[in-house]
Design a protein around this nucleic acid. Sequence first.
DNA 1: TTAGGGTTAG
Length: 735
Amino acid sequence: MNELMAAAKVPPLSNFPTVNNDRYFANHPTIKLIDQCSTPQHLNQIHAQMLRSGLFFDPFSASKLIQSSALSQFSTLHYAQKVFDQIHQPNLYSWNTLIRAYASTSQPIHSLAMFIRLLHECDEMPNKFTYPFLIKASAKLADLRLGKGIHGMVVKAGFSSDLFVANSLIHFYAECKCLDVACRVFSSMPERDVVSWNSMINGLAQNDCVDEALEFFHRMEAENMTPNDVTIVGVLTACGKKLDLKFGRWVHSYIEKNGITMSLILSNAILDMYTKCGSMEDARLFFDAMIEKDIISWTTMLAGYARLGNFNAARDLFDSLPSKDIAAWNALISAYEQSGNPREAIAVFNELQLSKAAKPDEVTLVSTLSACSQMGAIDLGGWIHVYIEKEGVRLNCHLVSALIDMYSKCGDLNKALVVFRSVDKRDVYVWSAMIAGLGMHGCGRDAIDLFMKMQEAKVRPTSVTFTNLLSACSHSGLVEEGREFFHQMGKVYKIMPSVEHYACMVDILGRAGLLDDAMELIQNMPMTPGASVWGAVLGSCKLHRNVDLAEHACNKLLEIEPQNHGAYILLSNVYANSGKWDKVSELRKVMRDVGLKKEPGCSSVEVNGIVHEFLVGDNTHPLSRKIYLKLDEMAGRLKSVGYVANKSQLLQMVEEEEMQEKALYLHSERLALAFGLITLGPSQPIRIVKNLRVCEDCHSVAKLVSKLYDREIVLRDRYRFHHFNEGRCSCMDYW
DNA sequence: TTAGGGTTAG
């Protein structure tokens, strides 16, 4: 300590003016020393010296110490708070410094607590510096009511036209997804700087309003406001979401032409744009030329390869990572999960668990739960739920939605409801996930009730909520209710129906046999009907055996998606249902000519945490012999109760009767069912996940088996859930 | 007498 003071040539305090004449303290050598401080020990020594000399009792000097301890790299906020608490009368600067520091932590709520203390304890009123920090904390908390309250105080205190205050308000409202209010703040500003524009552009881009974001960028240029690197990050985010590679390349050259500072963040944003737009070549070229790279650069590349299905390149990159943090693992897991490879996602999760290389975080758990949902892997999903509870992982709305989705999609609606009821904070995703869960299990009325409760809870529905709600109406045949919600969407909730909503509505009408109404709706659509709309028509035609309309819908569907084999299969089913076997063969030939193969049926069933998959006619399973014996036994018992195979949905025109029966008998869900009967205990439900829609014959078999073997069978097909119990199915034979 | 707001992955 003495050495330090000697080195700084600090004279004793008596040589300096006293507290009464504090204008000179800024030049006091001890205070100057604070700025040069670089270790916690130094800071400690200065703190001690200040206490000894009495300098600490000067508010200005104390505020310098607070600033250094709260905002520097080498000190902790905890220490700063302790120092603060020793100050007798901290000045506003000290209060602001702590409010600022807390706003940047993971617990911005402390900023609020300090603000309230400030109002009680400080002689001075909050000033124009206080509010931006406070608004930043509110933005981080995404607490709209809180932020609105602070906005009110800002107006009252007369700071609403302060540039910094207004900019933080724009950011805050965008963060709360209130883009209209953000825009209003922006428009009402007497002066704007580049940050005002950036906050708007980034806010819009983050909230998927990509065209609006780009519009702001062009407006900014037109108004001669020079964009900087942060602006371009927002523009690139928009490009990446627009999947517009051409524009992305233009932005890249814009950076070079306009001499915009190339920061690491900007470089990563460029990489991200290229990978999202699908050009790994551009991304790689840029990545290899980057002088400085961080973990984000690596994971962006990794996720890019994986998203495009180049898993070898992704894995190579992952293995060559200089250090793997949880984000790198998450990139690999979520890439597999999001590209429809849940099995691989789960394998990587298991690898992570075994290696103990990093601790799974909330993102890991959400991705893995989603992989479980896709696989129907309820054991692992349940294990993750236990893990969350055991490790005390904070259940945020993301995780809650993922759990509800997992339990719903794995067929355990009750568990999904238990999770839903156990939380008190429910955002729109949580409500929407639960509505979807009820819908897919055929509980349309409950889904509607829940939607009403959501209104009571004052949670605003989104476009996704309505998709789930309409789909719930469709699965339960609730035509009038569906119509009503469809109309309310735009009128009451100001959400314009998208092509997805139209598809749901067409589905609702079509399934109910109101094919004319469905076609009328399509004709009056304000946008071009997409594949989902024609798919819904085709599905309804299958149900109601309308050959002419099916042909029309199939043609339309193939115009949009020439490689859609589902379209051929459905049309073929329509022909078969009407006994038009010649048409079936013709169609089969067309499929062969265009090189399309029927996606092989695949069903899986989970036993003791291991998911067993079966293809049509599969005999590769180790227990294959036993499975086929069981199938024979099942066939015998089915026949004894008068079951006759329904062959109408066989794609192939198989000549011989016996062959036809064989083909049905070997359907993957039948194999999975037999395996479930062998391996699962009598009280355990058999949960099967099938990649295609279940055929009518297998549906009847499952109903009978549930009765004959006194088993609960839960079958998830491509479209919905079927709960078989005591000879009945929850879909009421309506799917 | 000190100062502030906006940015990249999953």
